[in-house]
Design a protein around this nucleic acid. Structure first.
Lengths: 217, 217
DNA sequence: ATGTGTGAATTACTTCACAGCG
DNA sequence: CGCTGTGAAGTAATTCACACAT
């Protein structure tokens, strides 16, 4: 995480894509202008939060009016580096990997899966939409030749760390990890974890309390 | 979110499942005892953070020694309400829903998918491991009869809100939402979002900066 | 020695509240 | 007026640092 004195807080960076998506939906609906209040209600965030977040990057609104949807969306896209598409490799062609490869929602949001890789010979060659599963051994060459900086990891937990090490070694700087394990990466590499079980458990915590309260209270 | 004066912060609750999983791995490896330092290194959290988090719930360690892995794991499981399995319904049997239904990692962590539902008649009856896709119309009865409190939503964005409304109406109190939209729920219902595109975008932000710096610096 | 548990200090994040612009 | 942009105020989360137990 960048710790420079005037760096933008990571929480803010993580909210920007949510703003962007909500604005994209608004644009599709034909909405021209939106206030921080309205946008906030859509995504469960306070109006002040949105205004403060945006103020890190500039002034995008008009007083008394609100934000022009297309204009603000364009700005946030640029801030997020989404002017052009990002090529991404996907490692792991199990049930989950295949579902990810077939998901239609990446392309339109600037994420372009350009290769799917697996170590299992029985999976090599499988067709997944326009992609075909390639052997893991071809992965380094593709990353280097196409200067790929982002990867999605969808392999079993016990393989995740070595897969990540290999990716980083070949120049990948951002990893979306679906494996249920916290992977270690060197300075300068970003990781985000997708962890459905942990999220469910963080809800069972509250539900279990409630049940308890119902019985005791 | 519970706002009682002595409520446990949600950030803490969200970390507990990560601690639990790391402890489970340690137990599998045959490790008996672990210090906050060691555990922290495994999951990228400071030792002080772990000790502080645990201190909300009691005293589980031994000074000079650390934590007994099995003992602490048992406690965290109980705190999270994982003494017994939680039945969960899954709505949506597209590529993603089917991958979720087939994922082996839920059962062993107390999450038991007991039904898969879809509105699309061509999907009804599909076999997914031991499960069979059922029509959405059967969903309310199952939730009510089996007192199901948790659901996983894997439907297209434009259907997510109405699916969630239906779930909540029938008594679901916790929702894991894979649809790329922030859904609204009434007080007392929990939602967690899984949003791969947003996570990737939060990384492109940093990668784009770096690139820029490399060009200008 | 080693490593927990925890008040105190620090840092980070959010909300307030209002000047000022359209 | 209505709504932004933003310092200031207020909360929340993290880290420090050390007494104390083994």
């Amino acid at each position: 995480m960048d710790v420079s004195p005037n760096a933008i807080p990571d929480v803010v960076v993580r909210r920007l894509p949510i703003y962007a998506r909500s604005l994209a939906y608004l644009a599709e609906e034909g909405v021209r202008s939106v206030s921080s209040q309205e946008l906030g209600e859509r995504i469960g965030v306070t109006a002040a939060q949105i205004r403060k977040d945006l103020s890190y990057f500039g002034e995008f609104g008009k007083q008394g009016i609100g934000y022009n949807v297309e204009y603000l969306l364009g700005h946030i896209r640029r801030i997020l580096g989404l002017n052009e598409a990002w090529p991404v490799v996907l490692v792991g062609a199990g049930h989950l990997g295949r579902a990810i490869a077939r998901y239609e929602g990446f392309r339109s949001r600037g994420i372009d899966i350009v290769g799917v890789f697996d170590a299992d010979p029985t999976k090599i060659g499988m067709e997944l939409g326009k992609l075909r599963v390639q052997p893991n051994t071809d992965l380094p060459a593709m990353i280097r030749q196409q200067h790929i900086r982002l990867a999605i990891v969808a392999v079993p937990a016990h393989l995740a760390q070595e897969v990540v090490d290999g990716l980083v070694e070949n120049g990948v700087q951002g990893i979306l990890n679906y494996a249920p394990v916290v992977v270690q990466v060197p300075e300068g590499v970003w990781v985000r974890h997708i962890d459905p079980v942990a999220l469910l458990h963080s809800m069972t915590y509250y539900l279990a309390r409630e049940e308890e309260r119902a019985h005791t209270g």
